[in-house]
Amino acid sequence: MTQMLDHDSAELGPGTRRPLRRRLVGPLATLVILAVLALSWLITGPMRTAGRLQDIVGIRWVLTSVSHDGRTAPVARLGDHTLKMESSGLISIFDGCNYNNGDWSWTMTGFEAEHIENGAVSCGYAPGTEPPPTDPIVTDGSRALYGSVSAETDFSTLTVGTDGYTLKYVRS
């Protein structure tokens, strides 16, 4: 009399091995799952960045300091240097004198500003009301925004890095 064994049951005797096909199912399933996860991570990178940084959109950010080559310069007059990104893709950068507008989009590590154009010059100060001089690091750091930058936020502050500059903003 021939006895048939169900390979999913505990009736397998000592030294009995499951068929090769059955032993490969677990490892192959694991490899497939890992491949799908890796592919989804690669495809949705910009969306993950956008999700993590979405809180920066629609907020007026005020520049407080710029660091470069081991030196940090505070902004002389808070509110003179601002950044605002709209969900429509418009970015507005005020550098203390000029309003600059352009387009922005998410990248894997932050955002990219492009097509920046000078919108208006508003530097007409009455005699005796001129602002204190702006540190060149602040001016150069503000201009470094015109390109691809890394960005991170903790909701109340925004840190932007580009071309060796680190710009610190606070929510206005």
Rank of each mutant, 00 (worst) to 15 (best):
G58Q: 05
T16E: 13
N118Y: 04
R22D: 13
E112D: 13
Q3N: 12
S142V: 15
G110R: 08
T153W: 02
L5W: 10
D154Y: 07
P127N: 02
S67I: 00
R18K: 11
G96V: 01
T153K: 06
L20D: 12
S172A: 15
V32Y: 00
L34H: 00
G102S: 01
G45M: 07
E11T: 14
C97R: 01
T139V: 15
S88V: 06
D140N: 14
R22I: 07
Y146E: 15
L42K: 03
S67V: 00
S150W: 12
D163L: 11
W104Y: 04
G102V: 00
V66F: 05
D69H: 08
T139R: 08
G164F: 08
L158A: 03
R17Y: 07
L78R: 15
M108S: 11
E112M: 12
V138M: 06
L167I: 05
S87F: 06
E152L: 09
Y146D: 12
P19K: 14
Y169H: 09
V160D: 04
N118E: 09
T107L: 01
L24K: 08
L5I: 13
G102A: 03
P131Q: 08
K168A: 14
G141H: 13
T72L: 00
S142E: 10
T157Y: 04
K84D: 08
T134I: 08
G79Y: 07
E86C: 02
H81D: 09
L37M: 02
F155S: 14
T109W: 01
T159L: 14
T134C: 01
T109L: 07
T139I: 07
T159F: 06
L37P: 00
S142M: 12
E11Q: 14
A35M: 04
E86K: 08
S150F: 11
K168F: 03
L42Q: 01
E11V: 10
G102C: 02
D103C: 01
L90V: 13
E117W: 07
D103E: 13
E11K: 11
R60D: 11
T49C: 00
T159C: 05
T107M: 03
S148D: 12
T166P: 01
L24M: 11
A126E: 06
G147K: 10
V32A: 14
G119E: 15
D140P: 01
R143T: 15
H68N: 09
R52D: 04
E114P: 01
T153H: 05
R77L: 15
W61K: 11
T16N: 10
S150C: 09
P19I: 04
L28G: 10
G119C: 06
V160C: 04
D8T: 15
G161N: 15
S156R: 11
R77K: 13
E11M: 14
P136T: 05
L28D: 02
P132N: 02
T49S: 00
T16F: 10
A126K: 09
S156F: 08
L167M: 09
N98E: 08
G51H: 07
H7L: 15
Y125R: 09
